[in-house]
Amino acid sequence: MRKVSSASKTADKVFRVATGLCASSPVLFLVAIGIVVFIESVPSIKFMGWHFLTGTQWNLGDMYGNLEVKNGVSAPAGATYGALPYIVGTLASSVIALLIAVPVAIFTAIILAYRVRGPVKTVLSILVELLAGIPSVVFGLWGVIVLAPWVAQFFGPLLTHLGVVIPFFRGPVGTGMGLLSSGLILALMIVPIITATTRDLLEQVPILYREGGIGLGMTNWEVVRKICLPYVKDGLIGAVALGWGRAMGETMAVLMVSGSAINYLPHSIFSPISTMAAVIADQLDSALTDATHLAVHALAELALVLMLLTLITNFLARWLVHRGGQRVRSGVRA
């Protein structure tokens, strides 16, 4: 047996420490982001209290007027930061996205897992992964020039017929920039995430279970519905939560088609909205003209709320996916 020289032992130790440091870097980044965002939002938390989550007015105050002090924080007179419209906009657009994306993605995954084979399967899988790789500004570009006009001229007027039954579908349709377009574009963006994860889960269903179903006289479809889908249920919910987190955090595509609403809770599916992520991107320059910097802190609090929401869904998602399938890895951004 060859003796391990002390030099290589030292090298091993050095390497171990170096890789360990590198491995801790994501943790450091995560902690740094969390701390910076939290510290920056403290003045806003003090200023607004819980009203930040329930108020509907986002008002930088009279920036050309006098300053006033409230709760120990100085701000331009009349400043108030109520993020409810943005929280609602984020939740509404992402839930609409889920309502569309989840069934579409599950059905697509079933096709990919059980109905196509060989090169067709490879090509379809590549296409779905490509959809996941398209930059969000390109989605936004497509949203602006194709989707929003289509919603305004065709899809929207069609949906207003449902308005007789469901008030939320009542017009006017407007320019197509708004909740519906945001939901549709987000749906398209999260379909590949849910599809890829679900496909991998479905492929892990033991063949014995499926053959057992066939042996009991089930049709192919019944095997999928009664055996495969229940088998992957936990992982599926995880995949959905993963997609939800992505939809809530998406910025550019939504910013381009949301209609940038302010102080306004959506009255119908055609209303212009704003999401938390879009507001942060859109309003930082306005916020910086506030001499008291309170507006910057308010945006930080918005980032904090957004981060917490996405983290909660992510925690949930990872936990469920890991419990469901044995560490399923999807080849796409998730």
Binding site: N59, M63, Y64, G174, T175, A261, N263, L265, S271, S286
Partner: peptide, 20 residues
């Protein structure tokens, strides 16, 4: 609403649209 480079706009839904 007063005046500024950014104000808290009236909430009138899709009768008022933002553009960059």
């Amino acid at each position: 609403y007063k005046y500024s480079t950014q104000i808290s706009w009236p909430a009138i839904g899709n009768s008022l649209i933002g553009a960059t």
